[in-house]
Design a protein around this nucleic acid. Structure first.
Length: 362
DNA sequence: TTAGGGCTAAGA
DNA sequence: TCTTAGCCCTAA
């Protein structure tokens, strides 16, 4: 059995190599690492790796935005200017995406819901609401208030505020909308993320294993334990693969890990404590309890039914609900949930409605 | 998807 | 035992 600290060093090293995503997924499941705390170096490496993965798959999604938000909330946010630029570019790209000719779909769009003319605009309005009137508005509010001000200020820039105004204008003006499509290209967003990642990886420096290896080599040469020269030669991807093989043969793949690999789910997100779907529409609905630690069996009329385990509302959930209702009004429960997927990850729209009923009752 | 009635676990 | 909060069911 590998020591958790050693496992974390191995993972931290391998995450920086050009390994295939599926291998990284298997690694995360195989190694006995606890969920990294936001202050641990591994946390930053994991988020950067997830972002790199989005870039290499050329797939920018709300998950990408979430990664950038997480990075800005870390104790010492790296490459602040590039991070702000990447956030603004990705937010704009995700909003404008439905307006691009390639996304509007032909007659075989198969997506249902809307379709036809105006479908792209509909999705655009929805994205403006979700990203700019909700997500970015929250950041701006937080940047001005005391709560999370530092993290939010790391993302809020004059450029972001200007783009938000532009998006609002585009909702009512077709000419502005057309301008957005020309200006906010997908390539522009990719480029901004690429620039940020280059800077961030550079700032991160070598992994602990690399430093240790250098020190060992130094010792072998009789030079003592010097841990300098961070840009010395990195182990090759092949070496990373061999190490991975070693880990896989150590027999530490747990049962749950195997199940998840078989189900091909998104193992990354488990490590961040707040799974975020690539597309909010695909978010799993939690209204029907499933067997597990979050459910309990209750006897009802001589038959057992599965019931969701009672979970007290946290002050963060309560406060978020209050602010959301203030901003978006009563009754928009689904929208409010979509605005705060990580905070309300364990709640259904009905839960939000029920909680609000309780809040106004007393 | 939402509103509203009703049930029940938890705690005073 | 009573109240409250969280959850479920059903109709629209």
């Amino acid at each position: 059995m590998i020591d958790p600290d050693v496992a974390a060093w191995i993972l931290d090293f391998l995450l920086r190599q050009t390994l295939d995503d599926s291998l990284v997924h298997r690694l995360i499941l195989s190694l006995p690492i606890p969920a990294p705390s936001p202050s641990s170096p591994l946390h930053r490496t994991l988020i950067l790796r997830r972002l790199s993965s989005d870039l290499s798959r050329r797939s920018l999604s709300p998950r990408t935005l979430h990664s950038l938000e997480l990075l800005s909330s870390l104790p010492r946010p790296s490459s602040a200017a590039a991070l702000r630029a990447a956030y603004a570019a990705v937010a704009a790209d995700l909003t404008v995406k439905p307006l691009r000719p390639s996304s509007r779909g032909g007659d075989d769009d198969g997506g249902g819901g809307g379709g036809g003319e105006g479908g792209g605009e509909g999705e655009f309005y929805d994205a403006v609401n979700r990203i700019w009137n909700c997500r970015v508005a929250d950041l701006e509010a937080a940047a001005e208030g005391a709560e999370g001000a530092e993290a939010a200020a790391g993302l809020v820039s004059p450029e972001l505020r200007a783009t938000r105004r532009e998006m609002e204008e585009a909702v009512v003006d077709a000419t502005v909308r057309a301008g957005l499509v020309v200006r906010y290209t997908e390539e522009r967003a990719f480029q901004a993320v690429r620039v940020y990642l280059e800077e961030a990886w550079k700032e991160l420096g070598p992994s602990f294993l690399e430093l240790a290896a250098e020190a060992l080599i130094g010792m072998a040469k009789g030079k003592g334990l010097e841990m300098e020269n961070p840009n010395s030669s990195k182990p090759s991807p092949e070496e990373g693969s061999r190490l991975l093989e070693l880990v896989n043969h150590s027999g530490t793949v747990n049962k749950r890990g195997k199940e998840i690999i078989e189900e091909n789910t998104h193992e990354w997100d488990d490590l961040f404590g707040s799974p975020l779907p690539a597309n909010p529409v695909e978010e799993p609905h939690v209204s029907y309890p499933q067997k597990g630690k979050d459910s309990l069996l209750v006897k009802d009329n001589n038959q057992f039914i599965l019931r969701k385990r009672r979970k007290k509302w946290s002050s963060l959930e309560e406060e978020t609900l209050r602010k959301s209702v203030e901003r978006h009004g009563v009754g928009n429960w689904k929208f409010i949930k979509q605005c705060h997927p990580s905070i309300f990850k364990d709640r259904t729209e009905v839960d939000l409605k029920d909680k609000w009923r309780n809040l106004v009752r007393h």
